[in-house]
């Protein structure tokens, strides 16, 4: 029995290892290419390691593109969207889960119906609103529609639904109003849900592409994703520089994921169970 399971484990490890190499390989090749000269990258047969690490590729990007600005734009809009969504969605979620008011079901179904709508069905009017408010090429444009989330409200509602009534009753007897119950009692208890929502918002916001492409065409207000597209416009075949830019755009989220990977994985799994 032991032997059988040992050889079985070996096969499992082999299979997983092959899969893992397919997953990580493209990233390693990106990093290696980003440190080569154009000549080295185009060499046949390919050289795995560069003769000398070409850090200048990275310098080139910062010299010819406002990359520091891309970082700031991505970072600040992600933070604002995440904090905004956590607050606004949890408020609405608390109301839908714990307060009885007329029209509650109607409005909840309205929120749910937003979940079903694919983005392209509201992109054009969203763009017009931003244009009419004279907000094109601003950070506000990047943040604004993303502050409101039907998904976030739905996810958090599922959490508030499962909380015991006793806590709320006790707080009411002590004279707490709904905001106090929400803020002091329910919000701390909903921490796993809040973390899950924060992770989704960070992921979507950091990686969002189509919306910034539409509303922010000026380089100083672009996030990393749209900046990457404009990088491609300039260095169409200079793959070492392009790979350096790609690495620069993607490392922060990869590091955040490595640090908080348990929360990431649990957050995504959770949405599967609650959804």
């Amino acid at each position: 029995m032991e032997n059988v399971s040992k050889s079985r484990k070996l096969v499992i490890h082999l299979l997983l290892l092959c899969g893992a190499i397919l997953m990580i390989g493209p990233f390693l090749w990106m990093i290696l290419t980003s440190l080569k000269t154009v000549g080295e990258a185009a060499q046949i047969p390919p050289k795995i390691f560069p003769e000398v690490f070409q850090w200048s590729n990275y310098k080139e990007i910062f010299d010819s593109f406002p990359f520091a600005g891309f970082y700031w734009n991505t970072f600040i809009t992600t933070i604002i969207k995440t904090i905004g969504q956590l607050f606004l969605c949890s408020l609405a979620a608390y109301a839908f889960a714990r307060i009885k008011f007329p029209g509650r079901n109607f409005f909840f179904i309205l929120y749910l119906s937003v979940l079903m709508i694919p983005p392209q069905a509201f992109l054009i009017p969203q763009y017009q609103i931003i244009a009419n408010l004279d907000l094109l090429n601003t950070l506000t444009a990047l943040v604004l529609p993303g502050l409101f989330s039907a998904f976030g409200t739905f996810l958090l509602r599922q959490f508030f639904m499962t909380m015991p009534d006793e806590l709320e009753e006790a707080a009411k007897i002590d004279g707490c109003n709904h905001f106090q119950i929400y803020w002091r009692i329910m919000l701390p208890l909903a921490k796993p849900g809040l973390i899950a929502l924060a992770i989704f918002t960070i992921l979507w916001s950091w990686n969002d592409f189509l919306w910034p492409l539409i509303v922010n065409s000026s380089p100083d207000k672009m996030p990393l994703s749209a900046g990457l597209a404009s990088l491609q416009g300039q260095y169409s075949t200079n793959y070492p520089v392009l790979m350096a830019g790609t690495f620069l755009a993607s490392w922060p989220l990869i590091i955040i994921f490595m640090l908080f990977q348990k929360a990431f994985v649990e957050g995504i799994a959770l949405s599967g169970r609650k959804g």
Partner: peptide
Amino acid sequence: FLPVVTMPAAIGMI
């Protein structure tokens, strides 16, 4: 899980 946290624009480039 790495590709999930990588921006699709970067994935396209790679």
